[in-house]
C-alpha cells in the first residue's frame, strides 16, 4: 500500500498523519492510561501502570477507582449536568437568535450581504477573552446596564447581574453566536430562494413554507451550528471563571481545579475521559453530518 503512493502523495499523507497521531492521538491515549493509574504523592503524582519491583516481578497498577470515585460523588456528576444544561440552553438561544440573522443576511442583496457578513465576522476575529471581559465590565454593580436601569426608573438599587449562571449563559451566547450564524448562513445562502416563491405559489402558508421547506433544507447547517456551539461549551472554562459565581460549578472548571489545585492527575484524566465519552454521541453526529455534506459536494 505504501509503495503505491507516489512520492509527493506519501509526504502529503504522512506528514500531517504523523503529526496528528503524535500530538493529538497519543496524548489522548496517555490521558486514558493515567485515568486508570493509582495516584500517589510525588512527581509525576501517579504510579506507573507497569512497574518492576525489587525482586524483578512485574506489578500491574491498574485501578478503575478514579472512575468509581467521580461517578459516586454527586459533586462531579452535578457539575457535568450543569455544563450539559448550560450547553443545551445556550445552544438553543444561539439558534433562536442566530437563525433569523443568518436567514436575513443570506436573503439580502449581494452588496449589503457582504457588508453584513463582514460585520458578523469582525467580533469573531476580536479576542474571545476580551469579549467575555466586556460583559464583566458591563454587568458590574455600577456597570452600564445597572446605571441605565436605575436612570430609567426600573430599579432603585443595582442588581447583582454578575457572578451567577445567567451571566454565564449570556457570555456563552454572546461569544458563540458567530459559530452558530456562520454555518447556518453557509447553507441558507446556497439554497434557491425561488423555492420559497414556489412553495407560496403552490398555496403553502408562510408558516408552513418555513417548517416544510426552509427548515428541512437548512437542517445540516442547523446541526453543524448546534454542534459547534454545544460541544466546546460543555468544556468551557473561561466564561464560567470570569462571569460565573459559586451558584453552579461547571465541568471545565472542575478539571482545571482537579489538575492545578488538587494536583490529582488520575482523577483529572478520568474526568476528561468521561467527558469525551459523554461527548462521543454529539461528536459522531457532527462528523457524520460533516462528511455527508462533503460527500454531497463531491
Amino acid at each position: 500500500m505504501l509503495s503505491k503512493l507516489k512520492n509527493y502523495k506519501f509526504w502529503f499523507v504522512f506528514t500531517p498523519y504523523f503529526w496528528l497521531v503524535a500530538f493529538f492521538f497519543i496524548p489522548l491515549a496517555i490521558i486514558l492510561k493515567i485515568s486508570f493509574s493509582v495516584s500517589e504523592w510525588g512527581m509525576p503524582p501517579y504510579k506507573d501502570i507497569l512497574e518492576i519491583n525489587n525482586s524483578g516481578d512485574f506489578i500491574l497498577n491498574i485501578t478503575s477507582g478514579n472512575y468509581a470515585f467521580i461517578f459516586s460523588d454527586f459533586f462531579y456528576l452535578k457539575s457535568y449536568l450543569n455544563s450539559l444544561s448550560l450547553a443545551f440552553t445556550s445552544t438553543l438561544i444561539c439558534l433562536i437568535i442566530g437563525y433569523p440573522i443568518a436567514f436575513y443576511v443570506a436573503k439580502s442583496k449581494p452588496k449589503i450581504r457582504n457588508l453584513l457578513l463582514i460585520l458578523l465576522i469582525i467580533p469573531f476575529w476580536t479576542s474571545f477573552l476580551l469579549r467575555v471581559y466586556a460583559w464583566k465590565v458591563l454587568l458590574q454593580g455600577n456597570g452600564i446596564l445597572n446605571l441605565m436601569l436605575i436612570k430609567l426608573g426600573f430599579i432603585s438599587e443595582p442588581l447583582s447581574l454578575l457572578y451567577n449562571h445567567y451571566a454565564v449563559i449570556l457570555g456563552v451566547v454572546y461569544t458563540y453566536l458567530p459559530f452558530m450564524i456562520l454555518p447556518l448562513y453557509g447553507y441558507l445562502v446556497k439554497f434557491d430562494l425561488r423555492l420559497i416563491d414556489a412553495a407560496n405559489d403552490l398555496g403553502s402558508r408562510k408558516i408552513n413554507t418555513f417548517f416544510k421547506v426552509i427548515l428541512p433544507l437548512s437542517l445540516p447547517g442547523i446541526i453543524a451550528g448546534c454542534m459547534l456551539v454545544f460541544i466546546p461549551v460543555v468544556g468551557e472554562f473561561v466564561i464560567p471563571e470570569l462571569l460565573g459565581g459559586s451558584d453552579k460549578l461547571y465541568f471545565g472548571k472542575i478539571i482545571w481545579d482537579e489538575f492545578f489545585v488538587n494536583r490529582d492527575w488520575p482523577v483529572a484524566s478520568a474526568l476528561a475521559m468521561s467527558g469525551i465519552l459523554f461527548l462521543i454521541v454529539p461528536i459522531v453526529i457532527f462528523q457524520m453530518s460533516y462528511s455527508k455534506y462533503n460527500f454531497k459536494n463531491e
Binding site: I26, I30, F259
Partner: peptide
C-alpha cells in the same frame, strides 16, 4: 473541548 486538549498535551 480545549480543556481536554490542553490537559492531554500537557500530560503528553
Amino acid at each position: 473541548p480545549e480543556i481536554i486538549l490542553g490537559l492531554s498535551l500537557l500530560l503528553f
